[in-house]
C-alpha cells in the first residue's frame, strides 16, 4: 500500500469513528436529539421527527460503509454530503447568532453553535471526506 493508501485508511478510520460514535450517542434518546434539531428552527417541523429517528441510523451506516470495502465510496459520498450540510447549518446558525446546543453528539454534545470551533470541526471533516471520496472513486475496483 502506498502512502496515499495509508493516508486514506487513516482518514476513513477517523471519519468512521466520528460517525459511529455520533450515531451511537444519539440512538438511545431521539427526544433529546429532536429537541436539538428543533432548537435550530431551520428545518420545517414535519421533518424533525423523521430526522431525529433516521439520522442516527444513517450516521452509523455511513461509518460502517467507510470501514468496509463494498460500499466504501458510497459511504465517503454520504460523509461528504453530511459534513457539507452540517457546515452550512452551523455557518447559518453562527451568522444568526443562535446560542443553541450543537447536538452533534446527542445529549452529550454540549458544544454551543455560537462556538466557532464546531464550524472548523465540520469544515475539517468535510475536507477529509471530500478527499477520501475523490480518492476512493478514482481507485475503485
Amino acid at each position: 500500500m502506498d502512502a496515499s493508501g495509508v493516508a486514506s485508511m487513516i482518514a476513513r478510520g477517523i471519519l468512521a469513528a466520528v460517525f459511529i460514535v455520533a450515531g451511537l450517542l444519539k440512538l438511545p434518546d431521539p427526544a433529546a436529539f429532536a429537541e436539538g434539531i428543533a432548537g435550530f428552527r431551520f428545518l420545517p417541523e414535519w421533518s424533525v421527527g423523521p430526522l431525529a429517528l433516521g439520522m442516527p441510523v444513517f450516521e452509523l451506516l455511513t461509518g460502517l460503509a467507510l470501514l468496509g470495502r463494498r460500499f466504501r465510496s458510497a459511504g465517503a459520498l454520504a460523509a461528504t454530503g453530511l459534513t457539507l450540510a452540517f457546515a452550512l447549518l452551523y455557518a447559518w446558525a453562527l451568522a444568526r447568532g443562535l446560542d443553541v446546543r450543537c447536538s452533534c453528539f446527542g445529549g452529550a454534545g454540549l458544544l454551543r453553535v455560537s462556538n466557532p470551533v464546531g464550524l472548523l470541526r465540520a469544515l475539517a471533516m468535510l475536507a477529509l471526506a471530500a478527499w477520501v471520496y475523490r480518492r476512493e472513486s478514482l481507485f475503485r475496483d
Binding site: 440512538l27 431521539p30 423523521p50 429517528l53 433516521g54 439520522m55 442516527p56 441510523v57 444513517f58 451506516l61 455511513t62 460503509a65 460500499f71 465510496s73 458510497a74 465517503a76 459520498l77 454520504a78 454530503g81 471520496y133 472513486s137 475503485r140
Partner: peptide, 23 residues
Amino acid sequence: NVFRDAVLVAAGFLLSLAVGFAA
C-alpha cells in the same frame, strides 16, 4: 460512478428512516 454512489446513499437514507421508525 457518482450517480451510482448517490443512488446507494439515497437508498441508505431511506433504509435508515425505516429502521429508525421501526425501532
